[in-house]
Amino acid sequence: MTESALNTEALGKRYGQTWALRDCSLELPAGRIAALVGPNGAGKSTLLHLAVGLLRPDTGQVRVFGRDPREDPDARADLGFVAQDTPLYPDFTAAELITMGRRLNPRGWDDSIARDRLARLGLPLDKRVGRLSGGQRAQVALALALAKRPRLLLLDEPVAALDPLARHEFMQALMGAVGEYGTTVLLSSHLLNDLERVCDHLVLLHTSQVRLSAPVDDLLASHCRLVGPRTPDGAAVPGVAEVVRASHTERQSTLLVRTDGPVDENRWTVHQVTLEDLVLAHLGTSARPTASEVAA
């Protein structure tokens, strides 16, 4: 059995009366590149902040390689974090940020990782990062997180504010680094397209709860779209564990289902689904999705 990089049990966080994250139990095995997906306000940032120890859980617990990220300094050393909007001190140069990282991480830091990455990208080390472009700042933030040599790297919507080219370059840099160091990654985004190509694990949050948490291959293998004669909602379909989403015309039903056995292929035409179909279908089930959620 592989080691678990991130493990949460009944994890919950509440702001006043509102639960930002509720009853979240998931396990992310080491070595995975996981996408954390969900509409805005689903609790993605809350989950990441809990995992990185910025927040204290109200219920349950979170463990990073078996350690409490809030209390255990070793857990802090294992974690790399790139926060939303990649905050950096704008009046620091990249070189100064690297010095800062070295001084704030006595348990493990490698200057050369950050320097080499930035040199390869042609980023100036002696320019204030406030004068860099958004994409360049994101690269600096990533380089800083990687120089910590984290075993688990968490990224909160790192590409949300970037243009498509910068987004592509960032993902490329991230994947290159992950391949090089074997880091486990949990990356949140509401832009599924960016993640689909690179992630092998999916965590789907919706309305503060975990809807899915599984390897992408398993999800794609277990989900399919069935097209067949009109079937009333709620009717049992052999081989189907759950109808995630159904739509009907007068004579025909289209079902996006999770299967648990062979489906009658005489009755149904079976289509493969994409990750995006699957995510959208799951987002549509628990609550009536709003326009923005569908867009997400």
């Binding site: 902040h49 990185v52 120890g53 910025l54 300094p73 802090r76 050393a77 974690l79 790399g80 974090f81 926060a83 939303q84 909007d85 905050p87 950096l88 001190y89 704008p90 800062m100 990282g101 704030l104 991480n105 006595p106 348990r107 493990g108 830091w109 933030a141 800083l144 910590k148």
Partner: peptide, 12 residues
């Protein structure tokens, strides 16, 4: 500026 998320997720 959100930089607390940078500095508080370092090793100290």
């Amino acid at each position: 500026n959100g930089t607390h998320r940078l500095v508080w997720t370092q090793g100290i």
